[in-house]
């Protein structure tokens, strides 16, 4: 039986209650929207890039605790990352929440490792990964809204 406090870790509850970077960053030049049809999670993600590096990130939207904390921690984690590094981070994060991450990958995730408990709750993987899918859309810059139902 999965342990509930593995899913709702302190760090996640904290970011869910007080999301960081819950704002539209000044000078944002990338923007993408994401939507989770199942539970109605909704996000608009904003980025400011300089020379291919994320200098600022923020989001608006509403959703469950896993979603909100994930979006909040994402905006912290991608600052200073190149597009390539950000996408690579998403790959490792996705491996984590789907239960496929190895020890080496876990160690490189920092605070994001708090989402390790999600893998025991398959229906919640979408909540954890919506902001990241939206990040990918913002970076690729095609502007099409992202849905977790793809």
């Amino acid at each position: 039986m999965p342990e509930l406090d593995e899913l709702y870790q302190e760090l996640i509850l904290d970011h869910a209650k007080r999301p960081r970077n819950f704002r539209v960053p000044e000078g944002a030049d990338r923007r993408a929207e994401g939507f989770n049809r199942l539970c109605g999670d909704r996000i608009t993600l904003f980025l400011r890039l300089e020379d291919g590096v994320v200098r600022d990130a923020g989001f608006q939207g509403a959703g469950c605790a896993i979603f909100t904390a994930s979006a909040s921690l994402l905006t912290e984690a991608v600052k200073g990352k190149s597009e390539q590094q950000a996408e690579d981070l998403f790959r490792r994060f996705h491996a984590l929440v789907t239960g496929h991450a190895d020890q080496a990958q876990m160690e490189t995730l920092g605070k994001l490792a708090a989402f390790g408990g999600v893998s025991a709750y398959p229906v919640r993987v979408k909540c954890a990964s919506l902001a990241w899918h939206t990040l990918k859309a913002a970076l690729s810059g095609n502007g099409a809204p992202v849905s977790t139902e793809e």
Binding site: L4, Y8, L38, G63, C64, Y121, R124
Partner: peptide, 19 residues
Amino acid sequence: HPHDVATVLDTEGIAVRAG
């Protein structure tokens, strides 16, 4: 959020709908 409510209730064996 209702989704979090339903997850907590599920760990108690209580099946409800969130959405």
